[in-house]
Design a protein around this nucleic acid. Structure first.
Length: 410
RNA sequence: GGGUCGGUAGCGAAGUGGCCAAACGCACCAGACUGUAAAUCUGGCGGCUCAGCCUUCGGAGGUUCGAAUCCUCCCCGGCCCA
């Protein structure tokens, strides 16, 4: 099974990439791999603390898939050990350190989702606790001695926090080292990561050379995909993410809500559209952003849910968003009510899960956001005889619906 | 260990004895508008049996007619010194 020519491989691998450090090393490694008929070992580390994958994660997973398709070896390293200690980004200090069991479970979830993109037969999965947990304190000290505080503080994240007077725990300095140690352990040829991983990836190079005399890995950095808000990177906590396990309708709708000038970027990074067709997409996006986006949305939904679901999602979008109609399938709610019994609308709304509190329900009514079968409700104190009025459609805002059904005599 | 500053709603940040359910910004929700779940504008954004009432300002006590605001102790963090 010969590898494709290096030029061809590079053409595939360059798509969407932000930076390859150093690029000539990659070419060299590919050449050597081809002459010796040995696949490259490509590493991707993943953080099991947040196992819900979104399109942002898929940028780098897709790249890994490309390596697989070219015949190389993909290793997914689940950071179960690092996840056990806590969170390195310092953003959520309150996040409890996970137990080994939890990180394993999350790791499995991650793998299950990642293999929607990766080729499961060609994906090796390793847990870094396997080797990191075995290291003694003196091993760690030795590892730590190869790097300096000043260099650690070069990392933007650390520098910013240090300058802003925010706390940095000592163990956070150990994280990049641990990640680098992973590269040493598997003797990675290439490590993939987002552009925010630059420092950590480079540290892997450093450790491979300094502590193990290995040929240092090539660092390949991919852009951080902007979220649906159009500016900040996609992240679940910013609530601008499109999850890969989300319902087709949601995926479609969220994709339609991205900014027009992000269409090309999404097409390049998270669509199946062939590289040769990308220029056409770019032009299309400028001429007719609405349709270009619809095409993109369909492409994305198809990848995760298939063509039929994508079609349905498109129809659903047309119906509910473009035309403002009530969707066909909406959740049913059967309140407990006897014949002729009147139920407060506020209770109906929270009972149907449309609102979280009666105060919220009241506010929404006052704002004209609540309707019954399309008629806007104005009275916050409205009582409904469910047995007589049901079934009817209760709508809150644009996207919250329930079909209220009477459950018969009680 | 010492000094000093700080811990306020999802986040950031005002307020420093009554007019505080707590300014403002972000996020979020709704209405209008739109090809759009974008942008923009407007309103909302603790809870309740809602023109009133109840629970909130790191924690526990205390002073006071009355405290997020004053005092005591404790917990957590920044900075400086050792």
């Amino acid at each position: 099974m010969p590898f494709p020519p290096v030029d061809e491989q590079m053409d595939v691998l360059r798509r969407g990439v932000d930076e390859i450090l150093p690029e000539e090393d990659l070419v060299e490694k590919l050449e050597e791999s081809r002459t010796t008929d040995t696949p490259l070992t490509v590493k991707l580390g993943c953080d099991p603390s947040r196992p819900d994958l979104h399109l942002g994660h898929t940028v780098v997973l897709r790249k890994l898939r490309q390596f697989q398709d070219l015949g190389h070896r993909a290793i997914l390293i689940v950071g179960d050990f690092t996840g056990m200690i806590g969170d390195p980004s310092g953003r959520s200090k309150t996040r409890p350190a996970l137990t080994l069991e939890e990180t394993r479970r999350h790791g499995q979830t991650y793998y299950d989702q990642a293999t929607r993109i990766l080729d499961p037969d060609k994906t090796e999965i390793l847990y870094n606790s396997e080797w990191l947990d075995e290291m003694s304190f003196s091993d760690v000290i030795e590892l730590a001695s190869t790097y300096t505080v000043a260099r650690m503080l070069e990392r933007e994240d650390f520098k910013n926090r240090y300058d802003a007077g925010q706390p940095i725990s000592i163990h956070e300095f150990l994280y990049p080292l641990a990640q680098g140690q992973d590269s040493v352990h598997i003797e990675a040829d290439v490590e993939l990561g987002g552009t925010d991983q630059r420092f950590n990836l480079l540290l892997g190079r450093h450790l491979q050379e300094k502590t193990a005399g290995q040929d240092p890995q090539v660092c390949m950095m991919l852009p951080l995909l902007e979220g649906t808000d159009g500016s900040k990177k996609m992240s679940k906590s910013l609530d601008n993410a499109i999850g890969i396990t989300e319902a087709p309708e949601d995926m479609y709708g969220k994709t339609m809500s991205i900014a027009d000038d992000l269409i090309y970027r999404y097409a390049e990074l998270v669509s199946d559209i062939p590289t040769d067709d990308l220029p056409k997409v770019k032009q299309f996006a400028e001429e007719n952003p609405r349709d270009a986006k619809a095409q993109l949305a369909e492409n994305i939904v198809t990848q995760y849910h298939g063509e039929d679901a994508a079609q349905k999602a498109r129809e659903h979008f047309e119906q509910t968003v473009v035309q403002g109609d009530v969707p066909d399938d909406l959740p049913e709610y059967r309140p407990e009510a006897g014949a002729g019994e009147e139920v407060g609308l506020l209770n109906l709304m929270s009972g149907a899960g449309l609102t979280e509190s009666n105060s919220e329900a009241r506010r929404l009514i006052e704002q004209g956001a609540v309707s019954i079968d399309g008629d806007t409700v104005e009275d916050t104190g409205l009582y409904v005889d469910v047995s007589a009025a049901a079934p009817f459609v209760l709508q809150v805002g644009k996207r919250r619906y329930a079909r209220v059904v009477w459950n018969g005599a009680e």
